[in-house]
Design a protein around this nucleic acid. Structure first.
Lengths: 202, 202
DNA sequence: GTCTATACCTGGATAGAC
DNA sequence: GTCTATCCAGGTATAGAC
């Protein structure tokens, strides 16, 4: 990993805990193991490091399904087949654990949460990645499931929100404490079981 | 309003947009209309202003139901009677609009979100007020509704999460933009209608 | 491309006049 | 209880040696 990459790496770690304003260039340099002045050979300033993080997030997260290794909406129909309870739980756990534990996504989640009110770019990315794309992906899957009659006839967007909102809630609750992920997963499984009971036609 | 109260007031407004670190004592003093040095006649420092805000939130929000003017769990059974769709929608709208638009709660919500990772006290208060108490309140209501057989036999906590998670999601999405509240309310109503369809026994 | 040294500024906080 | 003046620490950033 180049020094420039390590700067971005350490900066994201620090920003995601102490915030942008709460992290100094000295802190970042210290974490990398160089002096603060050396940072300026790689970036014009602190703001540019933040910009690099945002850009990287844009690249990494362009599509939720690709990042998590989930089938895309077209394949999903086959992949999930009749969408059994076990498969639904697998789907919810994958999404949840990805955002909670993925090296990059979990830190970006926290940073975006902290910066969303100060920084329009963060608000946009945060909303798109962690809200709209997730809902859109699930809407696609559920549309197909309903078409296949494995799910009850319902507005697929309402269904997607019903499925995703508890995941989002638990992410918000546990994003600072990934070590408590097990506790969260148990709650999540209960939610999904209830979801399945409500909508599945088996 | 005393100067001390106005300092807390303006500080909360600024903190809730620019964050604690992003707001200077000069900014606060400027908003109040005094010089920064005068602040120190009322507070020992910036940190104490933040402490005052946290304390005030503790007082204001001790019980969700009181703050919002909702019936408590015992009265709720009578109040909501058979819990019609309209009453469920009223309940969800009250909770949602309170956190979104209440002068104090909406700003505290944003501040707490930004400070939760840096400040354990904020994380505690944020989680207690905006997550656990809401869920606990709804669990109480739903327990009673199930006992009355107006709701299907279900784990009331799962029900509470099902009901509250979309509210929480929409709050997170629209907390910076209360002017778009109408758009959010339409989505919320759809969610509640679906919830009612799933669980009500009428 | 990393270092030392340094310039410059902002922000938190105090002292003391009124 | 507000002001002016001031101090000090810490943070961003630059210059220049190696």
């Amino acid at each position: 990993m180049t020094t420039k990459e390590r700067i971005v790496e350490e900066a994201l770690t620090l920003f995601s805990v102490k915030g942008y304003k709460g992290t100094s260039v000295k802190d970042i340099a210290g974490a990398v193991g160089i002096k603060d002045s050396s940072i300026y050979k790689h970036f014009t300033g602190k703001q540019e490091i933040l910009d690099a993080i945002v850009r990287q997030m844009g690249i990494c997260m362009e599509r939720l399904s690709v990042s998590i290794g989930l089938p895309d909406e077209q394949e999903a129909a086959k992949y999930y087949g009749e969408l059994s309870l076990q498969q639904l739980q697998e789907l919810s756990r994958k999404v949840f654990l990805f955002y909670l534990q993925d090296e990059f996504a979990s830190r970006f989640w926290r940073l975006a949460i902290m910066e969303q009110f100060r920084n329009a770019e963060f608000y946009e990315k945060y909303r798109r990645i962690f809200m709209e794309e997730s809902i859109a992906y699930l809407t696609g899957i559920f549309t197909e499931m309903i078409r296949q009659k494995s799910f009850r006839e319902t507005d697929p967007e309402v269904l997607a929100m019903n499925f995703y909102a508890p995941i989002f809630f638990l992410l918000s609750k546990y994003s600072g404490r990934p070590e408590k992920g097990q506790e969260a997963l148990e709650i999540l499984d209960k939610q999904v079981a209830e979801f399945h009971r409500c909508y599945s036609q088996q």
